[in-house]
């Protein structure tokens, strides 16, 4: 038996909206430590890793480890039927072929349940090592969204370079070129409006803007986003989802032929 209840159901709605265009399907792996997902996009250049801890839920029970194959477009259709203020409970019997989603309005006068058909999905589980990065940058998630959106209108790829001067995003295209530089800035009173640059060594990598732009669909989940960069390795774009866990996007760099 698996059961997970979250009072702030809007978090689940936002999570699925952030993922559904990038990954069409994937396994929700549930265990007594929580719920996780690893899924690649269809072109296999990026990876989504979602971790939701059991203690972040208002109630969590998982008697047996299970992999629940989810079609995210279908899950999104069901979650759109939940109110933003609703409490959401996920439930499945052991070896079930469906996941039940129960929505409760705050006033308790409306309760609905939907069953989502589960799929059988073969998925490769990748071992992602914990590692030190050459540069880690925390910035307002709205700022990241604006940068990648603006640059997407100019070019297809972005060169991200982190130096002691700051972090620079550069692109070029038919209309011309663009450079946006952010400096370490802890002046704003609100921590979520600050920019932190932790640089161990300068690094410069090129990425496809289309994907970086797609990752910014997770902006409603967190006020800040963390970018981690190391030479020749995928960038990590990480959103902390309150006390519940995190969603991380990994994107392979573009390298010279």
């Amino acid at each position: 038996m698996f059961e997970a209840r979250i009072t702030q159901g809007s978090v689940l709605k936002k999570l699925v909206e952030a993922l559904k265009e990038l990954v069409t399907e994937g396994n929700f792996d549930v265990s007594n430590t929580g719920l996780s997902l690893q899924a690649m996009d269809s072109s296999h250049v990026c990876l989504v890793s979602l971790t939701l801890r059991e203690d972040g839920f208002d109630h969590f029970r998982c008697d047996r480890n299970m992999a629940m194959g989810i079609h995210f477009g279908n899950l999104s259709k069901i979650l759109k039927c939940a109110g933003n203020e609703d409490t959401i409970t996920l439930k499945a019997e052991d070896n079930a072929d469906q996941l039940t989603l129960m929505f409760e309005a705050p006033s308790q006068d409306r309760i609905s349940d939907f069953d989502l058909k589960l799929m059988s999905i073969e998925s490769e589980h990748l071992g992602i090592p914990d590692q030190d990065y050459s540069a880690e940058v925390k910035l307002p998630s709205s700022e990241y969204q604006r940068i990648v959106r603006d640059l997407t209108s100019i070019g297809d790829t972005v060169l991200i370079s982190a130096t002691k001067e700051g972090i620079k995003f550069s692109t070029s295209g038919d209309v011309g070129t663009a450079n946006i530089t952010l400096r370490h800035n802890t002046t704003p009173e609100k921590p979520e409006e600050q920019t932190f640059i932790d640089l161990k060594e300068p690094v410069a990598l090129t990425f496809a803007l289309r994907y970086l732009n797609n990752f910014s669909k997770a902006t409603p989940l967190a006020p800040q986003v963390k970018l981690s960069l190391t030479k020749d390795l995928p960038i990590v774009v990480e959103y902390q989802v309150g006390e519940l866990g995190s969603v991380r996007f990994y994107l392979a760099p573009k390298i010279d032929d």
């Binding site: 690649m40 296999h44 490769e124 589980h125 392979a252 010279d256």
Partner: peptide, 13 residues
Amino acid sequence: MKQKPINAFFGGS
């Protein structure tokens, strides 16, 4: 420029 698949960077388990 080319792009390696993401699973080339992480070992499978």
